[in-house]
């Protein structure tokens, strides 16, 4: 059994412009392909198209793990689920995540009622409302197992990311052990949670650059503060990776994702704090 870890979308944030890098990068999403079954961590804008480009289909998706409910992590989730259902996937898909995952899933059939009613009328299919199962877990607890089946074991750690409940995930398979930070600010220490993993995928922001763009756009102090306090600068990513002792650090959820900030530039920002292998995520990169 071998695991493939594929970045489907590498962009962070909800600015969909050339300056943010949205022209080249889909929103945050990482696929774990384990023995033909797909486990997705987040499902940002455009990641469904990338899933197909990666040679996978929504019908392959067993479970989705949502780190938190900012739209740059969930924009394609509804589309993924209706298309998985429409493709005749059985059994249901599970959506794991912190609040409001349960109410989000409960509301889903209402959003797509007209389209799913029509589809049911045209083919023998179970009701859409029974197709998605919410597996909401409480935040606050540490490193609890939130998903365990014959292929993966996933633990979640609550992280600090402003207003919405947010978690980091540690995904273990027979041959991989990967930690994904989700969105997290400097108040969370992920090093203990990530200790012994082979790879740490950490969100990253070039805050000075982001701040310049935001100020030019006239953004409110509250929003600029959210970018500063609730996201991680490169030196935090590097220091966390060093203390966790991982071999590989993957920078993902790039803010900004513009080609103006090259891979070399990102690596240079991490180099003083981490001596291991550094990958800068891009769409369809396998890590």
């Amino acid at each position: 059994m071998s695991t493939r870890v594929i970045v489907l979308g590498s962009l962070g944030g909800q600015s969909y412009t050339d300056v943010s890098g949205a022209r080249l990068r889909a929103g945050t999403s990482v696929a774990f392909v384990v023995d033909g079954a797909v486990y997705l961590v987040d499902c940002g804008l455009g990641s469904l198209a990338r899933l197909l480009e990666a040679g996978l289909t929504p019908a392959d998706v067993r479970a989705v793990l949502v780190t938190h409910h900012h739209a740059d992590h969930t924009a394609d989730l509804g589309a993924l689920l209706v298309h998985a259902w429409s493709a005749g996937r059985r059994p249901e898909v599970r959506v794991h995540g912190p609040a409001p995952t349960a109410s989000w899933v409960r509301a889903l059939p209402d959003v797509h009622r007209v389209a799913t009613d029509r589809a049911v009328a045209h083919a023998t299919r179970p009701a859409f409302s029974a197709f998605v199962r919410a597996e909401e877990f409480a935040t606050g607890g540490d490193a609890a197992v939130v998903l365990r089946d014959d292929r993966v074991e996933v633990r979640a750690l609550t992280v600090d990311h402003g207003g919405l409940p947010s978690v980091a995930y540690r995904v273990r398979t027979a041959d991989r052990d990967v930690v994904l930070s989700g969105d997290t600010g400097g108040k969370t220490d992920l090093a203990g949670f990530a200790a012994g993993a082979d790879t740490l995928m950490h969100e990253v922001i070039d805050f000075p650059l982001a701040e310049r763009v935001l100020r030019a756009q006239g953004a409110a102090e509250e929003f600029i503060g959210h970018q500063r306090d609730d996201h991680s600068p490169p030196e935090v990513c590097g220091a966390t990776a060093t203390r966790a002792g991982v071999r590989t650090l993957v920078l993902y959820h790039l803010i900004p994702g513009t080609p103006g900030v090259t891979d070399t530039a990102w690596r240079a920002k991490v180099a003083p704090s981490f001596a291991g292998r550094v990958l800068v995520a891009r769409d369809l990169l396998e890590v």
Binding site: Q14, L48, A71, D76, A79, H83, A220, E222
Partner: peptide, 29 residues
Amino acid sequence: RLTFDQTADLASLAMGAWSNGSNNGDPAS
């Protein structure tokens, strides 16, 4: 029409277009 091939991205379009570069908190802007 309201079928997946017309609507799968529609709600996210509303959300994405809304979120895009408008965080100034100023109702007069």
